[in-house]
């Protein structure tokens, strides 16, 4: 969903750049608490994986394709602050080196595919985790639901931005229906990929998964009580 230059007017792009910068500043502060010797190499890997996976457009209905955004995945794996930093690096490299997503639209893309997917994905993930039983096997399903929510909200946020500063006047309800419709399908793909990646890492190294820590803490406590 990389927004090219020209879809949104200059004031809107400037505003989203400001929001993106604020988000990155908050993430840089917050990441200090998340990044330790284990998370640091994992963050590099997560960013690389998100970049690679974003090249893999999968077909959805009717000659349209979509690709992983990765915000929810990154947030669950390395934490939301570090996750946003990972996504920011990916989006900046795509924009500057590969001309994928505009340069004046970079702030917009960091907001849509970074801030919104990370925050929405992580909040939904945590919310689902509260409801589901605290088991390791529930981490991946919760991440998958977070992934679906993140993509749909990202698409809806684009419509909101377009309502403010869209280049060509078009009926917004039509735009909202079209964007949310197609991105619900893409969101299902995002959920499947996120589920598979999180499930496979949780099965091998649950201690590396940020979103599994609370579950692991509980498990340790239970073991001690039983002993």
């Amino acid at each position: 969903m990389h927004v090219p230059d020209g879809f949104l007017d200059a004031p809107t792009s400037l505003a989203t750049a400001g929001v993106a910068a604020a988000g990155i500043a908050i993430a840089l502060r917050g990441a200090r608490r998340e990044v330790d010797d284990r998370i640091a190499p994992l963050a590099g890997l997560v960013a690389t994986f998100v970049f690679a996976t974003q090249m893999l457009n999968f077909p959805v209905a009717g000659g349209t394709s979509g690709h992983l955004m990765g915000g929810a995945l990154a947030a669950v794996l390395v934490g939301p602050y570090t996750g946003l930093l990972c996504l920011t690096v990916v989006l900046a490299v795509q924009s500057l080196l590969f001309a994928d997503g505009g340069i004046t639209a970079l702030g917009t893309n960091v907001v849509l595919m970074g801030v919104v997917t990370v925050v929405a994905g992580y909040v939904a993930f945590r919310g689902v985790q509260l409801v589901l039983p605290r088991r390791l096997s529930m981490v991946a399903p919760a991440a998958a639901i977070g992934a679906l929510v993140s993509v749909v909200l990202s698409a809806a946020t684009f419509v909101g931005l377009y309502a403010v500063g869209g280049a060509v006047p078009i009926p917004l309800d039509t735009l909202l229906t079209a964007m949310v419709g197609v991105h619900t399908l893409i969101g299902v793909g995002e959920a499947v990929i996120t589920f598979l990646v999180v499930a496979s890492i949780v099965s091998v190294r649950p201690d590396l998964v940020h979103g599994a820590r609370r579950v692991l803490d509980v498990r340790t406590l239970e073991t001690r009580v039983a002993a």
């Binding site: 879809f7 000659g63 349209t64 684009f158 060509v168 078009i170």
Partner: peptide, 17 residues
């Protein structure tokens, strides 16, 4: 990878922006 337009590009084409 699929070479079809992605969700946003498709919608942009369909709705004329």
């Amino acid at each position: 990878a699929s070479a079809s337009p992605d969700g946003l590009n498709r919608v942009a084409g369909d709705l004329g922006f």
